[in-house]
Design a protein around this nucleic acid. Sequence first.
DNA 1: GTTTGTACCTGTCCGC
DNA 2: TGCGGACAGGTACAAA
Length: 291
Amino acid sequence: MPELPEVETQVRDLKKEIKGLTIKDIIPIYKKVLKKPKNFKLFKNSILNKKVLDIERLGKNILIHAGDKVILIHQKIAGHILYSKWIKKGNNYISEDKIIKKDPKNRFLIYLFVFNNGKMLGLCDPRKFSKIELWSRKDIKKIKEIKKLGEDPFSKNFTFNYFYGKIKNKNKSIKSVLLDQSIVLGIGNIYSDEILWQAKVHPTKKAKELSLNEIKEIFKAIKQVLREGIKKRGESFSDWRDIFGKKGNYDKYKKVFKREGLSCKRCKSAILKTKISGRTSRFCSNCQKYD
DNA sequence: GTTTGTACCTGTCCGC
DNA sequence: TGCGGACAGGTACAAA
């Protein structure tokens, strides 16, 4: 769900809303989301009364800089974060915000950060795959999980030569390559399908078999599609909502994702679906030819 | 070293 | 209406 455009939307909004606030309490509704440190008391003591200095996106991760620490949140498949105020009623937390309260997708709160203005940041995730980690600010960029990440598509280091060099010898499908976070950051199953449709490349084609022109088209499409996603404030065909509980607008613009059986918006041919290394992929049977 | 498969969880949807 | 099974946007780790 939350891929680059969705996480970018969240981070931009969070900068406006929580920068400068102080963390006053943490409520762990589902304790297992905290992966580091595993000990909740240690986690809480490390960030209590710390001021939020900045919020940053690193691929699909959200980094909240608080004092000398960084809280890393990854929402995985089905998570999203909300900014509101919740009141506990029995075993449930009820948001005082009407939009958040009436949307059933916002029911699955698993973690709450309480700020000095009384408002809270809530992590919501029906599948409980999300993770929260705590790192020190000075070595977050040095840890191996972060060091192995590739370039962000909007970084100046993401050049055609970088991209070409990373993929030219890959013996796996271009679909899997686009999902590989050690090559390009932030692309998930939705936008990879959209990018390949835009570039007119068959998803199962092996990266090393792509022509130079096809690689150029993919490189261009990565930026175009993701930029459009950000402009539309992400997609919400399923669980994802922005931090105010509102839906993104990209759904109307998507060309192939979850459109199998419908007609291609470019050539009217059928959109098909197939499985590639365990991930479902949708593509046009006519304009995305293998050769 | 590279690529593919599986586990992590639970809600939702479809067919019977 | 109710139930069982398939399926779901990501990633770490194991296995091939």
